[in-house]
Design a protein around this nucleic acid. Structure first.
Length: 857
RNA sequence: GCCCGAGUGGCGGAAUGGCAGACGCGGCGGUCUCAAAAACCGCUGACCGCAAGGUCGUGUGAGUUCGACUCUCACCUCGGGCACCA
């Protein structure tokens, strides 16, 4: 018989401190490694340790932890590790400011962050903690670098690079955002330097194609990557330089174009100001003008390249090329809108087909013959049978948009033009047969510049030998360890540290200089998810067995700001490691190419007014401000409940208080629902024997339990929590409707147990306490199996049916669940008889258990 | 300019093509209290009506359908990505 019990006060601080301690003592979050269970790898993007964790981290990790905990309860063998992306510039800046070493600052911050993670109750396998600044980690990164080098994927190139004067290092293309340094907002300078590159362009096509297989990724992230990779299909076409008589010479210039169909419309020819050999080409009388354009180009490239409507500048060189299809002589101009590092640095000018060429032609008075004209354009009738170039100007305000038919285009006149059109194919074929051109694909993606002139990073394992050139550090000499004695505050760099750079050549044994550049920190984060699998292995970066068991990551959770950089680089490294033969080719699963199966980009946490939280604005709400007064459970629930995971939300202190209210309510409810000694009383429930309020509660239990489980499965934690709230409401309604002595103890206890289990992934502390103190169990709620719910027990004897007339609800009727259709229709007609007066029923649509729609006019 | 995503009460947000607004916040009213807090209960899209009830309502306009927040097309607004990439 149920006995009234005293309900202890909910003391979040005491409960959370207690269980944090016990979990640590029991090593509760250690990976099980039970091959009999299906695996699940849940991963959150590891933080850069810039201080303590902020609200964005709290949200990110609350999502991942709810996922990992629920998966474990649902019977999965769960991998859920954490680490730190510990190299990077802020540590150096802090070290300079505080006259200390970057390592000191970094390790202190990691300790602070770790304490907060434990305080938040995140179920990480802390034995697998990875810090990228530990030599035991970057040793294997150096090893991977050497393997890539062997494979020919590492190159050194001299080319114009972005040098950030404030960070005093070069940047990758990806790290120049809106023309500015991604980290400090300075405008980078373009300088010519020899640097280290990874040949990510070798994988451009594969990285693009792979996106189509990623059905578990948000569309916008895939789209961003597609844009970034930037594949363009077109042709390379050779234009021969004309001699003084206007006859083609042996010397040719190649252009890339995506619109070979407009070739007849090319009336001039453009070279980039930096085009190699340009100066030798220019006739003396044009040298001054050309020099002027070159000067303008040089000046603009240093400016913010943002400006949309940039004035175009050009100068005639005095020379001509021959249009390969029309034979027309095209003047060669130098123009500052032609890019050196895309295509060939030379472009054919088709003013009727390209907006930039159009503007250029108008500015300098060059002819604009129409060659692709829309069929609804008045010009089309006039020109549709014209094959030669007769009309040399257009009445248009801008270049013709893509679609249309070819005119004034010799044998191709009349064909459909546009991107990938029949005219494109026909002209490429024509050129190929004559050796004048070929189909070509261009990419926006550039090779990845990975060397940084900074101290706090993974040293590039190379040696510069005056005799042997640049040689790799032998594997058995790894790791190349960073010296700990640099005085950064005094401006010392690795390049000025003889004890680091003085070495001997591994090939000839003579004196040599060690490479003093370090690797981009994005290299560190490109493979850390693999190191978690074997973090203590000193024989290799990871083992094949672990990769076979755990990869790919099933759920990857992090911010949208990594949509291009980190996620593209990781996809690249995974493919490289695959091609290095570091993974087993599994016949069943296929070779590992994509590291992350499902990606969730969580939204930002903004302040109450919708502004981004930042130290400079002074509007940061630290997690401690919630944990202090309310506890970690409330903090976790608040970030999960207030919005769907992928949406931004504005911080709302009232919503946080509301979550705390629910936890307290659930606390009292579970004590009330589970009478003392309930375990003995917990018989199997016979649903058929339940009636009235008990039957109602039982139905709610199963219906809401199913909904909650489904929402966990699809990662909708906000609605999963709503379902728990509804279950609590249903339980509360039962308690107030049924007197204490008359309650069905087996049922209420079952509800209590379900509520505790459902809430456990979100609020681990309070549920653990309830599991022991209210329900009287011994083990951990984390080991409680996820409760099973039964669809059959959600059905009711009678159902409410909406009766619609012409799609508008006019009445609601209660009918037996298994009512015959004709009787249902009869009752529906009766219920809306008033609305049907004077009308004729044309049709009745019945949806069993839901509604009846009467079509009457 | 090209591409992607999103528009639902006072707010955050729910809704396999089938009763729009679940759940929560805020607000209003009540119970308890000397009082307040806490807690609990009720009401809360707009408009008309004493009421019964009715009309309107998911950015705008069309369409498909017995029925559209949901599907299709066009447009508007906001957010994001790429952008002198030929």
């Amino acid at each position: 018989m149920a006995k009234h019990r005293d309900i202890p006060a909910y003391d979040a601080q005491a409960i959370e401190e207690k269980w944090q301690r016990i979990w640590e003592e029991q090593d509760l979050f250690k990976t099980e490694e039970d091959p009999s269970k299906p695996k699940r790898y849940v991963l959150e993007m590891f933080p850069y340790p810039s201080g303590d964790l902020h609200m964005g981290h709290a949200r990110n990790y609350a999502i991942g932890d709810a996922m990992a905990r629920q998966a474990r309860m649902a019977g999965y063998d769960v991998m859920h590790p954490m680490g730190f992306d510990a190299f990077g510039l802020p540590a150096e800046n802090a070290a300079i400011k505080n006259h200390t070493q970057p390592a000191v600052w970094t390790y202190a911050n990691m300790d602070t962050s770790l304490a907060t993670m434990r305080r938040m109750g995140f179920s990480y396998d802390y034995d697998r903690l990875v810090r990228t600044c530990d030599p035991s980690y970057y040793r294997w990164e150096q090893w991977l670098f050497l393997k890539m080098w062997e494979k020919g994927l590492v190159t050194r190139k001299t080319s114009p690079v972005n040098w950030c004067p404030s960070c005093k290092t070069v940047l990758a293309n990806e790290q120049v955002v809106d023309g500015r340094c991604w980290r400090c907002d300075s405008v980078p300078e373009r300088v010519e330097l020899e640097q280290w590159y990874l040949k990510i362009t070798d994988y451009a096509q594969e990285l693009l194609d792979g996106l189509d297989t990623l059905t578990g990724w948000p569309e916008r992230v895939k789209q961003m990557q597609r844009n970034w990779i930037g594949r363009s299909e077109g042709a390379n076409i050779a234009f021969a330089l004309a001699d003084d008589a206007g006859e083609p010479t042996e010397e040719t210039f190649t252009v890339f174009t995506t619109r070979p169909d407009t070739l007849f419309g090319a009336t001039f020819f453009l070279l980039a100001p930096e085009y190699p050999g340009l100066d030798a080409l220019v006739l003396p009388e044009h040298e001054a003008e050309v020099a002027e354009v070159k000067a303008i180009a040089e000046a603009t490239s240093a400016f913010d390249r943002q400006a949309t409507e940039r004035e175009k500048h050009g100068a005639f060189t005095g020379r001509y090329v021959v249009n390969p299809v029309s034979g027309r002589l095209l003047p060669i101009w130098v123009a500052d809108y032609v890019l050196t590092d895309y295509g060939t640095g030379a472009v054919m000018g088709v003013p009727s087909g390209d907006e930039r060429d159009f503007q250029f032609a108008r500015k300098y008075g060059l002819p604009i013959p129409p060659v692709v004209v829309g069929e609804d354009d008045p010009l089309y009738e006039e020109l549709k049978d014209v094959t030669g170039l007769e009309v040399m100007d257009v009445p248009w305000e801008s270049a013709m948009a893509a679609e249309g038919r070819l005119v004034q285009s010799g044998p191709f006149t009349g064909m459909k033009g546009g991107h990938g059109s029949e005219a494109v194919r026909a002209i490429i074929d024509w050129l190929s047969e004559r050796g004048l051109g070929e189909a070509k694909v261009e990419w926006r993606l550039r090779d990845w510049l990975i060397s940084r002139q900074r101290y706090w990073g993974t040293p590039i394992p190379a040696v510069h030998c005056p005799k042997c050139g640049i040689v790799p550090v032998p594997e058995d000499e790894l790791p190349v360890v960073l010296p700990a004695t640099l005085d950064l505050a005094a401006g010392e760099t690795l390049a000025e540290c003889p004890e680091f750079y003085e070495t001997t050549c591994p090939v000839c044994g003579g004196p040599a200089r060690r490479e003093t550049d370090t690797m981009d920190t994005f290299c560190d984060s490109s493979w850390y998810y693999l190191r978690y699998l074997d973090p203590h292995d000193d024989q290799g970066p990871f083992t094949r067995e672990s990769v076979g068991r755990w990869m790919p990551v099933d759920n990857y959770i992090g911010g949208i700001e990594h949509a291009i950089l980190h996620l593209l680089y990781s996809r690249f490294w995974t493919r490289v490691m695959r091609d290095l033969g570091l993974f087993d080719a599994d016949a069943a699963e296929g070779e590992l190419s994509e590291p992350f199966t499902n990606l969730l980009c969580q939204g930002m946490v903004k302040d109450e007014h919708g502004d981004v939280m930042s130290k400079s604005k002074g509007n940061v709400v630290p997690p401690s401000s919630v944990i202090g007064p309310y506890g970690a459970d409330t903090m976790r629930m608040a970030v999960l409940f207030v919005a769907p995971p992928e949406k931004d939300f504005n911080w709302d202190p009232n919503a946080v208080a509301g979550c705390n209210r629910f936890i307290k309510r659930a606390w009292r409810l579970v004590f009330e629902l589970a009478p003392e000694g309930w375990l003995e009383a917990a018989d199997e429930i016979d649903p058929a024997a339940l009636s009235g309020e008990a039957a109602k509660l039982n139905r709610s239990l199963h219906a809401l339990g199913l909904r909650c489980t489904r929402d966990f499965d699809r990662g909708q934690y906000n609605t999963a929590i709503s379902a728990m709230m509804e279950l609590a409401n249903a339980a509360g309604a039962y308690l107030s409707a049924v007197a204490e002595g008359e309650r069905d103890a087996a049922l209420t206890a079952k509800v209590a147990r379900a509520l505790v289990a459902l809430l456990a992934p979100i609020c681990p502390f309070v549920t653990e306490e309830l599991y022991h103190e209210a329900l009287g169990f011994e083990g951990s709620v984390y080991d409680e199996p996820w409760p099973a719910f039964d669809e059959a027990q959600t059905v009711t004897e009678t159902v409410q049916i909406a009766v619609q007339v012409l799609g508008k609800v006019r009445a609601r009727i209660d009918v037996p669940r298994d009512i015959a259709e004709d009787e249902l229709e009869a009752r529906a007609l009766e219920a809306v008889s008033r609305q049907l007066e004077g009308k004729t029923v044309r049709k009745i649509v019945s949806v069993p258990g839901r509604l009846v729609n009467i079509v009457a006019t």
